[in-house]
Amino acid sequence: LGWLRDVSDQAGEKLDALICVAQAHSGSLDKFEKVSLADVTERALVSLHYQTTRTRAVIKTDFAQSEVWFLPREMENVLQAIIGNAMKYHHPGRRPRVHISSRAGPDYVDIAIRDNGTGLDLPRDLEKVFGLFKRAHTTPEGAGVSLYSIRRVLDRVGGAIMVTSTLGKGSCFSIRLLNNQVPV
Results as ranks from 00 to 15, higher is better:
H91L: 01
L79C: 09
I59T: 00
T55W: 09
E141W: 11
G131K: 13
A57C: 05
P106Y: 08
E42P: 00
K128G: 01
S101P: 02
E127F: 12
R124A: 14
P140L: 04
V40W: 09
R151Q: 15
V58L: 12
M75S: 14
G84K: 14
P140Y: 05
I111C: 02
L132E: 13
F63S: 10
V46F: 14
E42V: 07
T55Q: 00
L147M: 15
A86N: 08
I82L: 14
S102M: 01
V46Y: 13
V58S: 10
V46D: 14
I82C: 06
S146C: 11
F63G: 06
V68C: 05
S102R: 03
Y50V: 06
I111D: 01
F130N: 04
L45Y: 06
D39L: 12
F133W: 10
T139H: 14
H90T: 02
A44F: 09
H90N: 14
H99F: 12
S101Y: 06
M75V: 10
N77S: 15
M75N: 05
T41S: 14
P72S: 03
T118C: 14
H91D: 08
H49T: 13
A86F: 08
S47G: 14
R56L: 09
I100P: 01
S102C: 05
R94Y: 08
G93W: 08
D115S: 02
I83G: 12
G93E: 11
S102H: 02
M87N: 02
R114A: 15
A143H: 14
F63Q: 08
L79R: 10
V129I: 13
A112S: 08
D62V: 05
I150E: 08
L132A: 07
L48Y: 07
D110P: 01
D107I: 02
I59Q: 05
S102K: 03
I59Y: 08
N85M: 08
I82V: 14
P72N: 04
R56T: 06
V46S: 11
N116D: 03
D107L: 07
P92Y: 06
A143P: 00
P96S: 00
S47V: 05
D115A: 03
A136Q: 01
N116H: 00
N116P: 02
L126N: 06
L48Q: 03
L154C: 07
Q65S: 14
P72E: 03
